[in-house]
């Protein structure tokens, strides 16, 4: 057994209009099931401590969160080391339900884009209305980033967390670098 590593070993860049950094290891559990079933709701809320998220939203409690992925899919975030234990609890709670909970922590890479121009960097790559009155902390968006699938949310104002597939981590870091290149501020969002 050796220490697990992230896709890019913690790459970062800070010479453009926003700060880019690969996040450290993040536990992620993908859950598919009937999100209206009480057993499913109970399993995910008790495993995360967070409330059931509404459509297009993320709810967080401490270092755990629930992200709404689709009408029958959630993504549970937890510390990387806690995935095994959390998954066991969910499997127990879901023993009698038709549901699929699976560890996808290593299948993903995660990035943080931050700074006053972070919204602009994201709006260059994703077809999402990122105006401050339209996209706010608490929202969760499953979309695309340039040519690849991605999901993102704002842990706080002026910061985004992006999840993408691990194999595309280098591509995502590279397009973020291009989108954040010096001199590329757009200046459309009220500051």
């Amino acid at each position: 057994m050796s220490e697990p590593v992230t896709a890019l070993g913690g790459a970062s860049a800070d010479n453009g209009i926003a700060t880019l950094a690969e996040a450290s290891l993040q536990g992620m559990i993908s859950l598919r099931g009937d999100l209206t079933a009480s057993a499913v709701k109970k399993a995910v809320t008790s495993a995360s401590g967070a409330a059931m998220p509404e459509q297009g939203r993320v709810t967080a409690e401490g270092d755990r969160a629930l992200c709404w992925m689709s009408p029958d899919e959630l993504l549970l975030l937890c510390p990387y080391d806690a995935v095994g234990e959390t998954l066991d609890r969910m499997h127990k709670a879901l023993a009698k339900s038709h549901a699929l909970a699976v560890n996808v922590s290593d299948a993903r890479a995660m990035f943080r884009v931050s700074g006053a121009r972070a919204r602009e960097v994201m709006a260059k790559l994703s077809p999402v209305d990122l105006a401050p009155d339209q996209f706010t902390p608490g929202m969760f968006r499953r979309t695309r980033l340039a040519q690849v699938p991605a999901a993102f949310w704002m842990p706080e104002e002026e910061a985004f967390h992006i999840i993408c597939f691990r194999s595309q981590a280098q591509y995502v870091f590279d397009v973020l670098t291009v989108a954040a290149q010096p001199g590329s501020s757009v200046g459309v969002y009220q500051e």
Partner: peptide
């Protein structure tokens, strides 16, 4: 039908 599918290609 009661079936769920997940793509775990990149987990491994």
């Amino acid at each position: 039908w009661q079936v769920y599918v997940a793509n775990v290609t990149e987990q491994y």
